[in-house]
Amino acid sequence: MAALMHDGVSGTSRLPAAGPPMAGLHVMAGDWMLMAHGYGWGVYTDQGGPRGRDEGFVESMAMLMAARPVGDGGKLQLRAMFSAEPLMGDRGYPNLFATGETAGGRALIDRQHPHDLFMELSARLDLPVAPGLTGFLYVAPVGEPALGPSAFMHRPSARLNPDAPITHHWFDSTHIAFGVMTAGLSGRHWQAEASVFTGREPDEDRWDIERPRFDSWSLRATWLPDEHWSASLSYGRIESPEVLHVGEDEGRLVASIAYAAPGFTATAGWSRKQRIPGRALQAGFVEGNWAIRPRHNLFGRVELVDNDELFPEGDPLHGRPFTVGKATLGYAYELPLGRAAALALGGAGSAYAKPDRLDAAYGRTPLSFSLFAKLTLGQPAGLR
């Protein structure tokens, strides 16, 4: 069954083969391998400082996959991914220093937007083209182009972190694009691919499927030297991604590296977002998850980002870039619920670095914490 599944579940990205397999329920139906995967988070967060808010919310994702052999050595995979996050409202949830997308026609600041009902609807066909060489085609009315690392909710290094990265819109904001086509070649230790896709980020109607435009493109090269490592370099030219900045395109250069070994996973990345026309803004992150003992996990993330969207129009600091950082450390205890599910209980705390110029808006030393319960379909590798 495993041979039918790819070592990544985020568009066509590749994760280290030694990483933990995705938790889920598997069933064989003739030549088809069927898999159901999903999770739901119940989170209470208290984001510190004058701009912070305390709030409870629910994050969720459900994925259905079907895969089967095709021809002589080929395979077909169908994938559908959904989220109930539109139910939380268009303002999403508090996340200090996070920006991107809109609610009520206004830019979201210090909040993480909800994801759409349709996160992915895709088909992928892999066919051998020469000894040790496979060609593939990925087509998705809703999907993810070949740009950046695996989206944060699919990275094993972030699987127990309840916070979306504040660098999300520098690395993986294209993970829900309405219209994607990717073609590529993969060998044993490498993959090269190109995508055309819709650059505009999802609008505020989180329930629909938007019209594809195929107005943007990206290229990505991935190197997998062994089962423990995966490194990628990608570039994307994105047309008018932000609805409030019509006519402002983006050139995004992203490098990332992931490592996996039994009980430990980590990912690091750097991104340069060039506004066209406009300035260049950089971001970086390092994150990891360490199973220190069976059922006991430590996780964390450190981020640094240049952000010029922290103040709304009309504010004297609107459009000014500031370099801000966030460091998160957390713990989670996992326990199996029968054979079909697992529950993780934990919490995380975050501290921030920022210029003194931001003290009036954010306070001198804002601190945040979150408590959560995460229910997962299937059982993580450490609990099996």
Rank of each mutant, 00 (worst) to 15 (best):
M1R: 11
A18L: 10
P20Q: 12
P21Q: 09
G38D: 09
D46K: 13
R51Y: 06
D54L: 02
D54V: 05
E55G: 00
F57S: 00
E59N: 06
M65K: 07
A66D: 12
R68Q: 11
G73C: 07
F82P: 07
P86D: 05
D90N: 15
R91Y: 12
A103C: 08
G104E: 10
L108C: 06
R111G: 09
D116W: 12
S122P: 09
A123I: 00
R124M: 11
G132P: 12
Y138L: 09
P145W: 05
L147Q: 10
L147S: 15
P149R: 04
R155A: 12
P156V: 04
A177K: 01
G179H: 06
L185K: 02
H189M: 06
W190S: 14
Q191M: 14
A194R: 07
A194C: 03
F197Y: 12
T198P: 14
L219G: 13
A221E: 11
S240F: 03
G247K: 09
D249I: 05
E250Y: 00
A261K: 08
G263F: 04
R272F: 02
G284W: 10
G284F: 01
R295W: 03
E303M: 06
E313N: 10
D315G: 10
G330L: 04
G330R: 02
E334Q: 13
A348M: 12
P355S: 09
P366K: 12
L367A: 09
L377A: 11
G378F: 06
